[in-house]
Design a protein around this nucleic acid. Structure first.
Lengths: 338, 338
DNA sequence: ATCACCCATGTAATCGATTCCACGGCTTGA
DNA sequence: TCAAGCCGTGGAATCGATTACATGGGTGAT
């Protein structure tokens, strides 16, 4: 592969001049510029990003460590992150933590070793010492979706309080009283917040949220299945199961189906996160939609602000309730996607 | 961030010795090794991967350019690729082409600029001059899922012929005669193959595949919607719509629903690609499952074989029919996931 | 005409690693 | 006892870029 030296030789100039042309430095004669450009073309030369990064100490690359790529919510997030980054001249390296802290740390370390310019992370746990350390050393960093409390790092996320309140109001109006929740890991902020918001909303409607109606999940389908089976085997099963993410809702659906029960006649389902498939499940699922695309873009902008020395901004956007027919709504089902 | 020089100074040895310790070169005294290791620890030193890559001319990174991250099939593929690569000591940088050749080329170029050790690609079109060029220059490369004919590059893919044949037999047995297909882009191998296999299977059953029953899609949900609308407005609409990928099946479902029709009573649906959600759509969708995980792993192994100088191997694995109830099957629906 | 400055360019240092080569001290075999 | 070899080590070249500094010629002001 041709190097800058080859180009210099071919153009009959020094490597410095070639570099100047490539970086559009003003002080190059039109003649030299022309010869360099021709040589670049003739040799199909492309600058070696590795060498350039070593010298300039910047890679124009962002790292994104997400909790689970197979979760459509995170996939969508990753996609919007990559798009915005590309638009701003950065590349993105994605690391999939699979909800496992060790794997998260592995990726963080690898990304740091590659000297990425900044890190976008949605922490799998609430306590990563490594992440705390990275933050302390001053690596540009932004939390997306989930965050770690007590660290002075911008957070870009959706706030589900209002939407969850709307959901509970909606369910209450439909006559449901026994509402259960499949919670996310307590170690994640999103895991906690959604349970808390749910509990508050219930209280506001004078409803109790007994411990038996709080199932501990881990944002994976299997846990949704397991928790739902437990709910169903209770002497008095809930009327509605609210899953704190879309995968656990999938698991809940599995469990209900395995019992030969019907949604919403026998039991209702609602989910946090809205995905295109929720329109087509049997029945379409009432869900809380996050502005995923905007979250990804805002996160990238915040991170690049830090990288380029501007003051970053935390962003919180509202989530919103999308009513369909999985909770016994009478409507000839409807509900749109993002 | 501490460099090898800092470590050398702290340990009272030269950088050469530090490097030897780090690369477990045999010829280092236990004493020196101990001091170096202590210094590494004390400084929290991590070798700069950028510098190392520049010198060794290898990045231990693979590039993966896929057609569409939002497609669950490709997401699953990407995940298994990353896992296998990690297990073998490589990182993966994913580029999302979004089915757009220019964007694919952008990613290929960026990856090459970063001097990735090898490239895994599922070409968005059948003719990328850039890809051809890259192949010619000897960059280690393997095609996954889709490929470009006439290039001497290993291909790892699933063969759907048998499964499509099984599908048509299945549909024929259910009494369906008017079968339509939403094809993928003609520029992709998978796009073509699936139509061809479908046509062959129909012919084998003495059925015709009129042009009106071949809709041109692009593997995106919207095209599935559009094509299905067209099918439905035909004087004699098909009894079954077979979508060549899961997103177009989603679109088809949308279109059918928008018309107020029911599946499978009014029209049946089948899809290439199986995804967890197909179990829960209304009704569960009969689909053709690919061994996605194994495909990803095999592709990585083939690529690393090339990178490390071993002879690579093309791999073709069979896809298989998963019968559910979207085509009017009488069964009290069933069907498993991968 | 002279000085000062600017412009285009080249030389060389530098980034952080790896690795070839040289060197000194020891061991080993003759 | 001496040559040969090995072992642990350090010095320095190298990878491919960027960039500070030096240089020489040209231009404009006085």
């Amino acid at each position: 592969m041709a190097s800058i030296k080859d180009v210099a030789a071919q153009a009959g100039v020094s490597v410095a001049t070639v570099s100047r042309v490539l970086n559009s430095h003003p002080s190059v004669s039109p003649d030299a510029r022309g010869r360099v450009l021709a040589a670049v073309d003739a040799l199909g030369y492309r600058p070696n990003a590795v060498a350039r990064s070593l010298r300039t100490d910047q890679t124009r690359t962002l790292g994104l460590v997400i909790s689970d790529v197979l979760n459509p919510y995170f996939t969508a997030l990753a996609r919007s992150v990559e798009e915005e980054a590309r638009a701003l001249g950065y590349s993105v390296i994605i690391g999939n933590a699979d909800e496992r802290p060790e794997q998260q740390d592995h990726h963080v370390r690898t990304l740091l070793d590659r000297r990425i310019d900044g890190l976008l992370v949605s922490p799998a746990d609430g306590e990563s010492p490594l992440l705390l350390d990275v933050a302390r050393t001053g690596t540009p960093m932004v939390f997306v979706d989930r965050w770690i409390p007590g660290v002075d790092i911008p957070v870009v996320r959706a706030d589900g309080h209002r939407a969850i309140q709307d959901l509970v109001t909606h369910l209450h109006a439909l006559g449901h009283r026994r509402l259960a929740i499949i919670a996310g890991p307590a170690a994640t902020t999103t895991g906690n917040e959604r349970v808390e918001a749910f509990r508050e909303a219930m209280t506001a409607h004078g409803l109790a949220l007994p411990d038996a109606y709080i199932g501990q999940g881990d944002f994976q389908a299997d846990s949704g299945r397991r928790v739902t089976e437990h709910f169903l085997s209770l002497p008095e099963p809930p009327e509605i199961v609210f899953a704190a993410d879309n995968l656990m809702a999938l698991g809940a659906l599995d469990a209900i189906r395995a019992r030969g029960l019907r949604v919403p006649e026998d039991i209702g389902i609602a989910a946090f996160d809205d995905i295109p498939w929720f329109v087509h499940t049997g029945p379409p699922i009432t869900a809380i939609a996050q502005p995923t695309g905007e979250l990804g873009r805002a996160a990238v902008r915040a991170l690049i602000d830090i990288v380029e020395g501007r003051p970053p901004q935390s962003v919180t956007l509202p989530a919103s309730l999308v009513v369909r027919s999985s909770c016994g709504e009478r409507t000839t089902d409807s509900g749109s996607n993002e």
